[in-house]
Structures are given as structure tokens and as C-alpha cells.
């Protein structure tokens, strides 16, 4: 085969390629337009709005630089919201992963009632959280609550889980664990199923026969990718906690249950301080991105095998 391709068939080929590209863009076009208009564009717009003093409904606004951000870090509500959010994430994420793995191991260890236990633990993942928050409120209610009554009857005194500033964040954490536990459990169950039995047998011959050793030398390392994935997903879900705060506490009492997304909502859509809300949104977004990158960087190298 010599270089037979003449100028004209080069052109024909090029035309062919162009037609391919056009049809590809016809397929991808709607996504691309919407992606830019509804996702990428608005995300960038948040940055732009965050450096203005815009209040929704106001006739004019002006560029104020980083004023909003400076104000944020003097804002007691925002600062306690920020620290509450970190505490919330730091409690919920390890608890969900730990308990989720524990429940998954317990379910997987024997055949009886596997499907039943799995279904029960998965229910909160499906249930409308706003409605379930109301159910939790009824459960923890000072007069009609099952839990509070039980506490009284067991002589543990009376508790006001949702209105005591020392208890309210912990209560939200418990509900957060309740909500996400099933998700972690289901992914752990899938991860456990995917571990080849050969590996456990080889480990047994190698002398790994204590259950804790088996967990350390085989199960946990093999679950590495699942743990990594859950760490990111549960962290994001915890950061995005909104419904329980909005329904149960509105951030109170004394801002003790103020979480980032709720503060952002109040500033932006109840006080309509749009520029200020946008600055808060930027902080929220930066935290999300930082966490994703941090976890991806730190953990990625250590958990991918194949």
C-alpha cells in the first residue's frame, strides 16, 4: 500500500469525520447546554454574587470584594454553625461506617433472616426524612415521647432532647446515624460478598484463623475501596444535612443545632441577604471540594489494587 490517498479522498474522509462529530454533538448537545446553564454556570455565578452586597429584591448592588467573607468569620451564628457541622460530620461518619460494618458482618455471618434484617436496616434510607423527623420528634417529645417516657420509667430522669442546647446536636447525630446506617450496611454487604472464599481459605492455611485476625488481614483490606467510597459519600451526606434541622430545631436552641446548610438557607431565603448567602455557599462548596480531594488523595493510593 503506497500513499494512494489523493487530495479528493482526503476531503471525503474529512467530511465523513465532520459528519460523525456533528451527530455526536447532536446527542451530547442537550446535556451540554443544560450542564452549562443549570450547573456549571450557576456555580460560577455563586462566586460572582458572593463578592457583592446584593439583597434579593433590592434595586441595586455593588462590588464589595471579600467583605462578605470577612463578615462571615465574625458572625457568631455562622461560626457555631461551622463548628457544629464539623462535629456532626466527625461523629456521624465514623459511627455510620463502624456500625454499618458491624451490622453487615453480623448479617453476613449466618443465613437466617438475612433478607429480613437487611430490609429493616435499609428502611430509613428510603423513608422521607422530613416526615421521619416528625416521627422522631414524637418519639423524643417531653410529654408524649416513647423514649422520654421510658427514661422516666427507668428512673433516668426527664430529658428534653430537642430543646436542651447540650443535647440537641447529639440528638441530631443519632438521627443522622439512624438515617445513613442502612446505606453503609448495604454497600458493606455487597463488598463482603465480593471477597473470594479462596482468600479466606489461603489465610486459614497461612495461620490467620482468629476472627479478629481474619478481619484485620483479609476482610478490612479487601473492603478498602468500599470504605473509601462510603467515607466520601457519607461525609457529603452529613455535610448536606438540612431536613432534620429545618423540621426539628431551626438551629436552636442558642444556635446549638445550627448546621451549615440550614444557616445558608436562613440567610439566603428568609433574610434574603443574597450576597452574604452566596459567600456562605462558596465556603460550603469549598469545604465539599476540599474533603473530596483530601480523601481521594490520601486514600486512593492505599486502597486500589487492581
Amino acid at each position: 500500500m503506497m500513499a494512494i490517498s489523493t487530495f479528493s479522498n482526503q476531503r471525503a474522509l474529512q467530511k465523513y469525520n465532520t459528519r460523525d462529530t456533528i451527530s455526536a454533538y447532536a446527542l451530547v448537545g442537550p446535556s451540554l447546554v443544560l450542564l452549562i446553564c443549570l450547573l456549571i454556570g450557576p456555580s460560577l455565578a455563586v462566586f460572582a454574587i458572593s463578592v457583592t452586597n446584593w439583597q434579593f429584591g433590592a434595586q441595586s448592588f455593588s462590588f464589595i470584594g471579600l467583605q462578605n467573607f470577612r463578615e462571615l468569620f465574625d458572625d457568631r451564628v455562622f461560626l457555631s454553625s461551622l463548628s457544629n457541622t464539623f462535629i456532626y460530620v466527625a461523629v456521624v461518619v465514623p459511627s455510620v461506617l463502624g456500625l454499618g460494618l458491624f451490622v453487615a458482618l453480623a448479617i453476613e455471618s449466618r443465613k437466617e433472616f438475612q433478607a429480613f434484617y437487611r430490609a429493616v436496616h435499609f428502611l430509613p434510607v428510603m423513608a422521607t426524612l422530613a416526615a421521619m423527623a416528625i416521627a422522631w420528634e414524637a418519639l423524643l417529645h417531653p410529654t408524649i415521647g416513647l423514649v422520654t417516657r421510658l427514661a422516666v420509667q427507668l428512673g433516668l430522669g426527664s430529658w428534653n432532647f430537642l430543646h436542651d442546647p447540650r443535647l440537641v446536636l447529639a440528638t441530631l447525630c443519632v438521627i443522622g446515624v439512624w438515617q445513613h446506617l442502612g446505606y453503609a450496611m448495604v454497600l458493606f454487604l455487597a463488598g463482603l460478598k465480593a471477597i473470594p472464599s479462596d482468600l479466606y481459605q489461603a489465610a486459614e492455611i497461612d495461620g490467620v484463623d482468629h476472627p479478629l485476625d481474619r478481619l484485620r488481614y483479609v476482610t478490612l483490606p479487601m473492603l478498602g475501596p468500599v470504605i473509601m467510597f462510603l467515607l466520601i459519600v457519607i461525609t457529603l451526606k452529613a455535610l448536606e444535612t438540612f431536613d432534620t434541622v429545618a423540621v426539628l430545631t431551626q438551629g436552636g436552641p442558642e444556635n446549638a443545632s445550627e448546621l451549615l446548610l440550614h444557616t445558608l438557607y436562613v440567610e439566603s431565603f428568609q433574610f434574603f441577604r443574597t450576597g452574604y448567602g452566596a459567600a456562605m455557599t462558596v465556603v460550603f462548596l469549598l469545604i465539599v471540594i476540599a474533603i473530596i480531594f483530601l480523601q481521594a488523595k490520601v486514600l486512593d493510593k492505599r486502597v486500589h489494587y487492581s
Binding site: 443549570l38 450557576p42 456555580s43 455563586v46 431565603f269 460550603f284
Partner: peptide, 20 residues
């Protein structure tokens, strides 16, 4: 861009979409 979109929590878009 799709991957970037994957990372953006949809609550971030609330203000600009509200305005839009």
C-alpha cells in the same frame, strides 16, 4: 464537565437558580 457536575451539591445552586 460531567465529573465536575458530579461534585457540586445541588444546594449550592439554590441562590443563582432562585434569581434565574
Amino acid at each position: 464537565m460531567v465529573l465536575v457536575g458530579l461534585l457540586i451539591p445541588h444546594q449550592v445552586l439554590a441562590i443563582p437558580l432562585f434569581i434565574l
